[in-house]
Structures are given as structure tokens and as C-alpha cells.
Design a protein around this nucleic acid. Sequence first.
DNA 1: AATCGCTCGCTTTTT
DNA 2: GCGAGCGATT
Length: 699
Amino acid sequence: MTDTTTPSRSDRAEADWLDDLNPEQRQAATAGLHEASDGGPLLIIAGAGTGKTNTLAHRVAALLAAGAQAESLLLLTFSRRAADEMTRRVQGLLARAGVADGRLAGVQLPWSDTFHGVGARLLREFAPRIGLDPGFSILDREDAADLINLSRHEARLSSLPRRFPQKGTCLAIYSAVVNTCRPLDEVLETTFPWCREWEEALRGLFLAYVEAKQAQQVLDYDDLLLYWARMTEHAGLASELGERFVHVLVDEYQDTNLLQSAILRALKPDGRGLTVVGDDAQSIYAFRGATVRNILDFPDQFGGTATRVTLTRNYRSSPQILAASNGVIALAGEGFDKNLWSARPEGPPPALVSVHDDLGQAGHIVARTLARREAGMRLKSQAVLFRAAHHSARLEIELRRHNIPFVKFGGLRFLEAAHVKDLLAALRWAQNPRDRVAGFRAIQLLAGIGPKTASTVLDNLAAAPPGAALLAEQPVPAHCREAWAALCAHLETLASSAAPWPASFERLADWYVGQIERLYDAAAMREADIRQLAHLASTYRDATHFLTDMALDPPEASSGEAGVPLRDEDYLILSTIHSAKGQEWRAVTVLNVVDGCIPSDLATGNAAEIDEERRLLYVAMTRAREELDLMLPKRFYVTHQAGLGDRHVYASRSRFIPNAIRHHFQETAWPPAPEALRGSPASRQAAIDLAASMRAMWK
DNA sequence: AATCGCTCGCTTTTT
DNA sequence: GCGAGCGATT
């Protein structure tokens, strides 16, 4: 490629569009680009709302304008959505900068994706060189747990005199070992102490699990990172990748784990060309192996050559909201010092709203939401955030009753609905006949076939030489023969490359719709999901791309219960705090800001866990631009209280809002008189309350 | 061999 | 308030 832009012209154009940035941002966007120093490691500490994405987009644009090839940029973002947003903004910048003329017009960033997404692509590409089948399938969490369960049963671990950990726990332990790069005994000691006695059995189980995955050519989520990391331990491959990706930029660095930082070090051993962006105060993924140490220790790596830039000017929240948020995070332990200051107009102080219970929360939100909309604030500019997906159950009922459309993010995914898993399992099995979990599920979709028949069929197929010809001749009970033949026909159509995609999949979907009535209730809703899935599939080039994307980046909102409003309609946002990462709204309400929820009483084991919960509240609060309500229900429903029949406790304001910082808030109650609540059988509930409080005294 | 119904144990956040 | 697992039933 020839450079037709003269240096002077390029400099002038660049200076133009960099004018949008404040001095800190500009320093971050251009660090190492113009000095004699040649792009040493760069750490950008970007507090909440400080224009992180915008700054990163400017840096990408600056690199491209300086002559970097788009395919030599590796941009690791947290989600596919973040990656798309980045591409969009970079394109906009380049167009405005006038450097677009032909050369950079409509630039795509082919390597802008999540760690797992990039891992999957690199592994398919390098598969032949590392002894992997390029057609490997990817197991989602549930599939991985099912596979580990097969090994668990085979090793007879499920019928021991003392209870052995469940499949989910086994997978969690395995995953923790992989992602934290720590030995099994240490992980058990610190994170799963109640499983210590099973160390040897678990070690054997994990070996069996790894062997099963290899025999079936399937990879779980962790493998996408692990194989990538192991691959880069070979110097040749590491330098090949390091040369291909001249610049590596990582977003949300505070949420990476040791395995991910090891990959980065292998790609960029001296840190040159490496940029990481993040905010230690927003680290909320320790539970899946992320370590805030990655970002805290970054300056000391690479022989202390890293440049550090801190962004402190907040463009999002009113000074009142920012002051309250700063007050919350200031009580945390270690962290980079940064005094965020607001560039926004004054607003009302955030509110601490006392309500009676769930229903009160819902009532307050309905009233406030409607009032704001009357005042001209679209529903889409308002969000309700919560710690756990099920916390919004009551609210969803009330919203529906009041005809307020909403979309919920987080919690149960489209992908996790049983009927969606069924159909995808059938497709996966057709793609990869060795995938036992998929086959096991698909075969049992037929009436009259259970686990026994399914196992026999899979054993037969595993023992036979490759070739699907004998699929139809498998020994199924006589009364299933016809149904079996129909399924086989679909599978063979899908497996043979002759059949056109997506028509082959649509026919499989038609077949599956015929089974739904027998398998589940609420058949109509499930059928709608299946149609949607088939439509989604038709937007992909082939089955492999479709399946990979469904495993790594499934559609977020589950259509089933929420009843997704039309896309152009206005709707309220409901989201878990985790899923709200990186977003902002004009008005935000946070549910259940009480001890036992934030912090969750499942996470008060040690100081580190409590600090993570504190950061979670901080993340929730800093999503708000103008208005922020923190809800304080007097009664908080705890679903995991065994035995007593008691489903709620008397809760108090979260410990993260101690009296010392209360002055940042305005305290209100809703409704003024509890009797005003419609449909609340006050007398009956009062009786339950009393009994519960008696018990709560002794807890 | 499949399926129904019962009991027991667990119950967060996501790539 | 749910699933996994087990025993009895068809």
C-alpha cells in the first residue's frame, strides 16, 4: 500500500479531530505515536464516564492514520457489542478526519472481538498445526457441565457414601484452576474449602473430562483461552502472532484474568505495542477468575517502562451523583488514586427510597417511570438495575400490569431455554457426530427413546469407523423406527455439504416444531423462539459460524417471558448490574440496596469479596446521568432459607452507605401510606411479618 | 426401558 | 420456589 498522504497534511487533519479530546484523553490517544520512543506499554486508567470508549476509538483511528494496517490491530473488547461500537466510532472519526480518501474509507477492524472470540478464530486457523480438528464444536457452560457429569457417573462418583460435588461445582472448580493459573489444592483451599477431601477424585475426574473433550473434538470456554495460551508458549508461534498483531489494545482490563494476561505477555513480551484500558474501581468479575492485580500491577511489569495516563473528567453524571459514587468507592481498600470530577450540570441529589417490600419497590418504579416519561424522558433513557436476575420478578409483573414495555438483559439467556438447546444440539451433532453431549440430547427428543437407547446408539457410532451411513440402522425400539428415520434424514442432509444452508436448518426446525407439543407446555411461545432462531441462522454463512456465534455471543434478551417489544418501540431497560457494564442512562434505579443483597450474603466471606460487592454498587450508581434512586425495601426476600418456610428477612441499608456518607443522599419513603397499595392483603402479610421477625432475631 | 412421582439439597454475577 | 436423582410403575 502506498502512502499518498503527505505528513504535513496528515498532521493537520489529525490535530483537527483530536480537538474533541481533553488533554488527558489526547495524551492517552497519541502516547508513543509521535515521540522517538517506539510505543512502549501504555496503561490508561479511565474512571467511570470519562470517555474511555471515545479515547480508545481515537487511539485506534490515530494508529490507522499513522499507517497501521487494520488487520494488524488486535482489539480485545468485553463484548461483541463493544467491538461493533468501536468499529462504528473509528469509521466516523476517520471520515471526519479527511484521511479517508479511498485508503481508509469504511475501514473494518477484522480482529476486534472478545478474548474468547479471537481465541476461537485463531484456534480454527492454527488447528492443523496444533493437532486440533478445525471443525471443533464449542460447549457452552451447561453442555460442559453435562459432559463432566458423564465422566462423573462413569467414575462412579455420583453414588458414593459421602456426597461428591455436583456437576456445576466440579466445573466451577475446574474453571477456577484454569483461569487463575493456580494448582488444584490451592483453589480448593481458598475457594472451595468444603470440597478439599475430594482433591484426588477431582483430579481424576478432570483428567477424564479433558480426555473426553479431546476424543470428541469439543472445546469449552476455558479451552479457547487455554489452548491459545499454550500455543503461545511455543516461541515460533508466539513471535508469529506477535508480528501479525503489531498493536494489541485491551478494553476493560480490570476484568481479565491471569491466563489472559499471560497471553498478552506472550504476544508482546516487552510490552511494545500493548495498550490496556480499564478502571480498577469497576472490577466485578473476580468470581470467574478475573484479578484486579492485573491492572494494579501493570505499571511494574515490563521493567517499569509503562506509561500511565489517568482520565478523571467525568462527562456522564451530575456532580451530585458523582459525589455520592465517589463517597461509596472511597471506602474501598487498595486502588489507583483518581479524583473524578464532573463536567455536567447540577442535578438533584440521589435518593434513598424506603419502601415496604418488593411490591413497594415495583410501585415506586412504575410511578416514577411514568412521571418521567410524562416529563419527556423516553423509557429507553431509564433503567432499573439489580444484583441477581430474579430480583426483578415482582417488578416485571407490575410493569406488565401497567402496560409498560420493557426489555431485560442478563439472567436467563435465549440460549439457555430448553427448546433452543434441543435444536442447537441436533445441529451440533450433525456437524460433529463425535459430540456426545449434543447427540445424547438430540436422540432423546424422540418419543420412546431414553438415556439407555441413546447411550447404546452413541457407543455404536463411536466404535464404528467414520461415516454416517449406519446412523439409520441403529437399534431403536420398533415403535420408534419411523420417527428415527425422519430425524436421521435431517441429520444427514445437514451433514452433507451438498445441502444448502440455511434451508437444511429450516427443515430441521420444522421437524422440531412438530415435537414441541409433546415435549413441553407453552408450546406456542417456544415455537416462536424456534422460528426466531431459524431466522437468525439464515443470517449466517454456514452452520459453523452460526454455532460458534451462538456459543460465544448469544442474543441477550430472552424472548419467552418478557415478550420483546418491537424494536422501534420505546421500552424500559431492566438489567443485572453485570450486564449494565459500559452503559449509561439518564435515570437509574437500583433495587435492593440492602445488606444481604449488596453485599450478597453469599459473598461476605472475605474482605476481597466484600470489596467486589462495593465496586458492584459503584458500577450501578455511576451508570446514572441525571437521576439516581437507590431502593431500600424493609423486607428483602431471601429465596434460600431452608426449612422455615420463611422467605424474607428484615433488611437494613447496605453497609456501603454508612452514616458518614449519608449526606450525599436525600431520603424519602414511598408510598406515604402503605394502605394505599392496591392489591396488597395487608393484614395477612402483617401476620407473616411478625413471625418472621421473631425467627430473624435468632439468625 | 421409559416415565412418573417423590425427596433432598441448593439457590449470584458471565465469556 | 427447581433440578437432580432415585425408586416404583407401566
